[in-house]
Amino acid sequence: MGGTSARPARRAAALILAALVSMFVLSRFAASPEFHRSTTDALDEKRTTVMELAAAATAASAAITLLPGDAATPIADKLADLSAGFLLVLCAIYLEKYLTVLTGYASFAFLIPLACGLLAVNAFRKSGTLRSISLRLLALAAAIFLVVPASVQASNLIESVYDASIQSTLDSARETTQAIEDQAEGTETDQGLLSGLLTTVKEGVSGAVEAAENVLNRFIEALAVMIVTACVIPVLVLLFFVWVIKVLLGTAFPPPRRDP
């Protein structure tokens, strides 16, 4: 009898110890930037790419405005409008970076200790409700701790396919920007010197506009990839985790019944 009555006390003591270890030891590691170094490095690399794309788009927009006439003005305006999309992606990347640390701390400093505390109480009371709630808290802690690293890994798989395309977009934008600037300077010089060169100038401007349209299309494609990898995939990964948790907990642990 004595050994049987001591089992709940030993189980509760072990759970309280686990809660303390999680709160005061594991939470420090989970909130440490070094612990998430691979994830933050991937996010920093993505941030650098977004900033390069935004700078290249702004430079291309400014260069296009140097062309004579209004044919290229809509392209310049559209390139300038893309900065809002790149800013959105940049904000999402910073949010993921901060959540990497915050979710780890919240999981190990609050959710897991709370779940262990409820399980410790349940060791004496034998409540199905407390057990179900504590298991759901543990599942939630695991989900929010893993969602950002999992989404970053999923994003990296997609970005690896488009790395060459994005780099090509940057190279093409820089080359086109320089060519348009040179063309604009050459156009002003030609018009100031000889009116007989107007035909050549018009052909050059037409080619510059076509090149600017191609650059705009490349930037739109790059922005779409960035929005998918930085904004859409994290949401989908979070929904996937929520669905898995519901399926697992719903199968293994039916909804709690009211205790008499």
Rank of each mutant, 00 (worst) to 15 (best):
K78I: 04
I112C: 04
L137Q: 11
L87D: 15
S107T: 06
L138K: 13
L111W: 06
S132H: 15
A139W: 10
D81R: 07
I64C: 06
A142E: 12
A142Q: 14
R136D: 14
G69F: 01
L102Q: 08
A120I: 00
K78Q: 14
L140R: 13
Y98A: 15
T100V: 15
S83H: 06
L88M: 13
S132N: 14
A142S: 13
G128C: 05
I93T: 06
L111T: 02
R125D: 07
L82I: 01
T73F: 06
S132T: 12
A106R: 11
L119V: 01
K126Q: 14
A141Y: 08
L90Q: 15
T73S: 08
N122P: 03
C116Y: 10
A106H: 08
L79C: 00
T58V: 08
K78L: 06
F108I: 04
L135C: 09
L99E: 10
A63M: 01
K97D: 12
F108E: 09
R131F: 09
T129D: 10
R131M: 08
A120E: 02
S127P: 05
G85S: 07
L130W: 06
E96K: 15
A106V: 12
A71K: 08
L67Q: 00
A106Q: 08
A80F: 05
I64P: 01
A60Q: 09
L90Y: 11
G69K: 05
V101D: 11
L79Q: 02
L119F: 05
S83F: 05
F108W: 13
L88D: 12
E96A: 14
L138H: 13
A60R: 02
C116R: 09
L138Y: 10
I112A: 03
L95D: 11
I64S: 04
A123G: 05
A72E: 03
D70Y: 08
L66S: 07
G117P: 03
T58M: 12
R125Y: 09
A62D: 13
